[in-house]
């Protein structure tokens, strides 16, 4: 039998074609974007306040630190466990407070249901301020006001979360189907009934999703609160660093990773149950 070789493609004409991947306009667009990015990087690299010899010795320094951290010190575990639990508690209670407070804020901050312009503006300002200031800065403030301890942490977590949740829940109120609201209005229901029967059921899935997500984020955030004195594992971390107890530092890092993973697993489970 003959082999399978087919001849070269034939009968296709002899035309040649000049092909370029992008049109002239596309190419110009890409070049100018490239130039802008290059200039930006050039400006940054030439003006940033970095002592370059430190950069070149950095890999060595980091290696050295990692070397000193090994192995994690298991004797630190009895110290770690109570503050780790405190970390979770701060995140949970902070989120709980935020959930309660963010609901009215979301309601007043949603353009379609907010009673008037003033309530809308107030809610929006609260949301923006809360969101733009980091948990740790809130913590700094509340440690100054309330004194050090987990309570400052809880309040900081709550203050940062209110804006986050208020914004997302408010957006879901703005995007909801208006039909059920009209149906209830037509049946003569008051605003209270409209909230419980037409708005709440529609916003519920987003509400849960946002609350769970924020709890997950807050576990991460509450691991550092202690560094400014607001409770949780951060304090232990800071002390271990200041005393150069590197093996304890690495044990703390391992436990932080474990507690964050724990948070992710729990939120994953709850999310699957609820949604």
């Amino acid at each position: 039998m003959s082999s399978l070789t087919s001849g070269p493609l034939k009968d296709l004409g002899k035309e040649t074609y000049h092909w370029q991947r992008y049109t002239f306009k596309q190419r110009m667009g890409r070049y100018s974007a490239f130039v802008v990015v290059a200039l930006l990087l050039y400006w940054t690299l030439s003006t940033v306040d970095v002592f370059w010899p430190w950069v070149w010795s950095a890999p060595e320094e980091i290696n050295d630190m990692l070397y000193r951290m090994m192995p994690p010190n298991p004797r630190a575990i009895p110290e770690i466990i109570p503050v780790l639990i405190e970390t979770i508690n701060i995140a949970t209670i902070g989120t709980l407070f935020a959930v309660i407070i963010s609901l009215p804020i979301a309601y007043f901050g949603a353009r379609n249901v907010s009673p008037n312009k003033i309530t809308l503006a107030i809610a929006r300002v609260i949301i923006v301020a809360s969101r733009s200031i980091n948990t740790l800065i809130w913590a700094l403030l509340f440690v100054a006001i309330l004194g050090p301890g987990p309570m400052a942490g809880v309040v900081a977590i709550a203050f940062r979360s209110i804006g986050f949740m208020g914004k997302l829940i408010g957006e879901s109120i703005e995007e909801m189907d208006w039909g059920p609201v009209e149906a209830l209005q037509a049946s003569g229901s008051g605003q209270g009934h409209i909230v419980t029967y037409a708005i709440t059921p529609q916003v519920m899935p987003t509400f849960w999703a946002v609350a769970i997500l924020r709890w997950d984020i807050n576990i991460r955030e509450s691991t550092v609160l202690g560094m400014v004195g607001a409770g949780g594992i951060g304090m232990l971390f800071q002390v271990a660093i200041d005393l150069f107890r590197w093996n304890t530092v690495s044990m703390v890092l391992v436990s932080i990773i474990l507690v964050v993973l724990f948070g992710e697993v729990v939120t994953g489970m709850v999310r699957r149950k609820l949604i």
Binding site: L9, L12, G13, E15, T16, Y17, H18, W19, T23
Partner: peptide, 22 residues
């Protein structure tokens, strides 16, 4: 290679899509 591009164009012409090259 240019010969590949030529052949691609010829094939596209053959399947009736040479106007859609880009």
């Amino acid at each position: 290679p240019q010969e590949d591009i030529d052949r691609a164009y010829q094939l596209l012409k053959r399947v009736g899509l040479s106007q859609y090259v880009n």
